[in-house]
Amino acid sequence: MGSSFGKIFKIHTYGESHGPALGVVIEGCPAGLNIDESFIQAELDRRKPGQSKITTQRREADGFEILSGVFEGKSTGTPISILIRNQDQKSKDYSHIADKFRPSHADYTFQAKYGIRDYRGGGRSSARETVARVAAGAIAKLLLQHYGITCQSYVSQVGALKLEKDYTELDLSKTEDNILRCPDPEIAEAMISLIDETRKNRDTIGGIITGVIKGTPAGLGEPVFDKLHAELGKAMLSINAVKGFEYGSGFEGVKLNGSEHNDAFYKEGEEVKTRTNHSGGVQGGISNGQDIYFNVAFKPVATIMMDQESINEDGDSVTVSGKGRHDPCVVPRAVPIVEAMSALVIADYLLISKANRL
């Protein structure tokens, strides 16, 4: 249960952090799509560990194998299966917490739910599971490219350091120019220094990623339970360490009156536009054709290199000490994950929309 996502463009992920491999099965991808394997690898490289001094030093090439659903470089319309093998597991790093519950991890809740858990890196609850999502998201991106739709994300906040510029003021093509993945080089350097300082203090820090979806046609989404923004929220909140989601004006919108917040329509040629975009490209749960933008809040990584009080499986008081290789801040590597989940949502609703009317 809970390992599948989507309705028509549907994915099912499998595997554990310290198992032999992780993978994904993708259903509903239309036949005839060019599957650019170099693009898929590039997306996986953006997420993989060991990229810089501000990420975990686990070394995984994250090379992938396509096992089915692709022939002569094109999708066949049948399920696409992708496998990513683990190569740099160090399970011994977790032997000291085999019977202990790490604070703010899924150790206790997994034990409560299943009566058994894989303590090696958290098993299925590990953020390593997202490698499968990024592989699937790369194929969703290839589908969206066919329709002129792009999903981009960038780091907009680390701790209390916030990029005050709106996404419309930024050159998002510069996002990959630094190890933080922030398109503003000045604030990026300050954020990198903050993360590095936090790492040296054996602690962790949180942050915010801003997502921007451009080129979405009007009419995607459903008016009641399956609203487009609700599905985007579900997608983002399913990512490890995410604590919050807001789209459009979000919580800041409560400061405005209706006369200020309403997005007035106008027509430019044959295209309907809005003069402002407080709605974030979604109205009534359905896309209106404007940019969709949102923020995703990530908590500080739960594993810290300090002693912490906790209990073991018998309920005895214990001390938990962080060991191994962990991210001091998750947001630099989470940028492609946010993009992947965005692409999966939009690809799914795009295919659903084709069944809604003649």
Rank of each mutant, 00 (worst) to 15 (best):
A343N: 06
A135S: 12
E222W: 10
S193M: 07
E164G: 04
G15E: 06
S125F: 11
D36M: 08
A98H: 09
G324L: 02
N34H: 14
Y114E: 07
P300D: 01
G248F: 04
L67N: 00
G248P: 03
H229N: 14
S310C: 02
N240I: 13
T175I: 07
T55D: 07
F294W: 10
Y167W: 15
V134T: 04
G63R: 14
P20Q: 03
G32R: 10
G322F: 04
I82F: 11
E169G: 04
V242N: 01
K53D: 11
K243E: 09
N295P: 00
D36E: 12
L161D: 06
I192C: 07
E189Q: 15
A264E: 14
T319G: 00
A61Y: 11
A61K: 15
D36Q: 10
R202I: 05
E260N: 12
Y293D: 00
E231Q: 15
G280F: 02
P20M: 01
F251R: 09
G315W: 06
D184Y: 09
E43D: 14
L170A: 08
C329T: 01
F298S: 04
I54S: 02
V212S: 01
L232C: 05
D88P: 04
L172T: 13
S353M: 07
R124G: 01
V272G: 03
E186G: 03
G137H: 06
